[in-house]
Design a protein around this nucleic acid. Structure first.
Length: 489
RNA sequence: GGCCGGUUGGUCAAGUGGUUAAGACACCGCCCUUUCACGGCGGUAUCAUGGGUUCGAAUCCCGUACCGGUCACCA
């Protein structure tokens, strides 16, 4: 199984799972599925201050929600564990000792203040800020002196001079770096915990990762990692750096741009597959014109060759369109299930309803299915079925009731309503027909006053659909109240 | 500032030397309809910029501008 494709998603549990992380995970997952490979989930929790267990949970839950599963990693295990970096410290130590012994790494006793001063001096001199190698060649005496002072050293990687660091990026093609532009970087912090650029190499190598697909912000880190691969005698994997997701103002997506975490979209009632479909189209495009994909179709069509180099602006409008598309395709049962928590939260139902009440709620909710883009929009879309005390939405709406034909229409309507044996779509339709015939008024002059009197609004669902749901009694009451308010009767 | 990457309509994007430069979202119009929504049809709008190379350039080369990433004991 030496040529098995293995990818990984390696998030840091330092915050709510970000939409950009979801896309990285998705691209890795699609590639693995496409090539029949394996996906590893590794948690990079070496930032002790910011890593939190609840964020790890948040990430895992979001991945599961999106339908992105992993074959190896935290929770599911696998042959190359543990899959949490803080549980792998002894592994890193072994390699660190090796690098130290070979002189490829060295102890650095510079304090944060000293390093800061160096950076500032360099910047002031118009040079690039980087570590100049102060502790590169410490004598045993100097080291002993620092140790005696109680200084805790970091371990730095000795970056060789004049080395060309070139790799072929799956997305960007051949990328060159020169080792001279890189200062000796810290691989083990003073507290003994490895840094990202170091641990990631050991883990990816030991976990036999063949393709490292990650965000573009890591592109400049790659040469450092290449150096570590080479120093440790590890085989370099393939790299693919996907572009960043930007906000409307073309700046990197952040909280300012609205919802950035997966959770927020879940809470707003977006469908996981809609998000997946949308994210897949952000930075990747099929060769044909297809926009809507099932997961299987996505896997089949996905190809790293068509991953875009340029960053993409997150367009909520398009996400909404995709989500609305999937919502329209839902079964009534699924749509009701989606609506339920939002309806409960709005106070329109308790969630305990049964029988007729439940049946009525189902019908009401069903009217929203072609109108909403995501779950949170459902309560406002059905609000008119729950609120009998409404005002006229606009003056224009109120004016509709001032037309001289209105009293006649209303009288007839109330009469028809009182005489109706049952109140379903066809009977309501017949009622309007009768009124139209008798009064010889066009549809607008019959329907619109009734609509305004019934809802206070000139727009809304079909009356033929709405009146049966409201029932004769509420219909009558609502309309009479409106007429009174308008000063008619 | 150094290094690295990027630039096709408002947005996502197809395109790899010869196309009327696809498609989608958004927008506008028309149709359907008692209204809105849904749906259907149609429309406006793009190769950042300046030089090359070439019979011919969105496509290849160089410069410029702009945007982004990175230069941490964060990942």
């Amino acid at each position: 199984m030496d040529n098995e494709i293995r990818v990984r998603f390696a998030p840091s549990p330092t915050g709510p799972f970000h939409i950009g992380g979801a896309r990285s995970a998705l691209f890795n997952w699609l590639l693995a599925k496409k090539l029949g490979g394996k996906m590893v989930l590794r948690i990079e929790d070496t930032d002790r201050d910011r890593s939190k267990p609840e964020y790890e949970e948040n990430i895992k839950n979001a991945l599961k929600w999106l339908g992105i599963n992993w074959d190896e990693g935290v929770d599911v295990g696998g042959p190359y564990g543990p899959y949490r970096q803080m549980e792998r410290l002894d592994i890193y130590k072994k390699y660190t000792d090796q690098l130290l012994a070979e002189g490829k790494a060295y102890y650095c006793y510079c304090s944060p203040e000293e390093l800061e001063a160096e950076r500032e001096a360099l910047t002031a001199a118009g040079k690039m800020p980087r570590y100049m190698g102060k502790c590169r060649n410490l004598t045993p005496e100097q080291r002993a002196k620092f140790e005696a002072e109680g200084r805790k050293p970091t371990i730095r990687f000795r970056v060789p001079e004049g080395v060309d660091l070139t790799f072929n990026d799956l997305v960007r093609g051949e990328v060159h770096f020169d080792s001279d532009g890189i200062g000796d970087f810290v691989i083990v912090k003073a507290d003994g915990i490895p840094t990202y650029n170091y641990a990631v190499v050991i883990d990816d190598s030991l976990m036999h990762i063949t393709h490292v697909i990650r965000a573009e912000e890591h592109l400049s880190n790659t040469p450092r990692q290449l150096l570590v691969y080479d120093a440790l005698g590890f085989k370099r994997p393939e790299f693919g750096h996907i572009s960043l997701i930007l906000g409307k103002d073309k700046k990197k997506m952040s909280k300012r741009h609205g919802a950035t975490s997966c959770d927020q979209y879940r809470q707003l009632g977006y469908l996981p597959h809609a998000l997946v479909n949308f994210l897949a189209l952000l930075g990747w495009a099929p060769t044909d014109e297809q926009e809507i994909f099932t997961t299987e179709e996505l896997i089949k069509a996905f190809n790293m060759k068509h991953v875009a180099k340029n960053p993409a602006v997150f367009d909520i409008e398009k996400l909404n369109w995709i989500n609305a598309h999937y919502i329209k395709q839902m079964t009534p049962e699924d749509f009701f299930a989606l609506a339920k928590p939002f309806m409960v939260k709005a106070g329109y139902m308790t969630g305990e309803e049964t029988g007729e009440k439940l049946a009525w709620l189902e019908k009401v909710v069903a009217t929203a299915q072609t109108q909403v883009e995501f779950g949170a929009q459902i309560p406002p879309a059905v609000a008119l079925y729950f609120n009998d005390n409404f005002d006229f939405e606009t003056q224009e709406a109120a004016d509709v009731l001032k037309e001289e034909t209105v009293p006649t229409v209303m009288d007839m309507f109330f009469k028809e309503l009182a005489e109706a044996a049952t109140l379903d779509g066809p009977t309501v339709k017949a009622m309007f027909k009768t009124i139209q015939k008798t009064t010889k008024l066009n549809g607008k002059h019959v329907y619109m006053p009734v609509r305004v009197a019934l809802t206070g609004n000139q727009h809304g669902p079909e009356l033929v659909e709405m009146i049966p749901l409201l029932g004769a009694e509420r219909t009558k009451q609502r309309m009479e109240a409106s007429l009174k308010k308008a000063g008619i009767k």
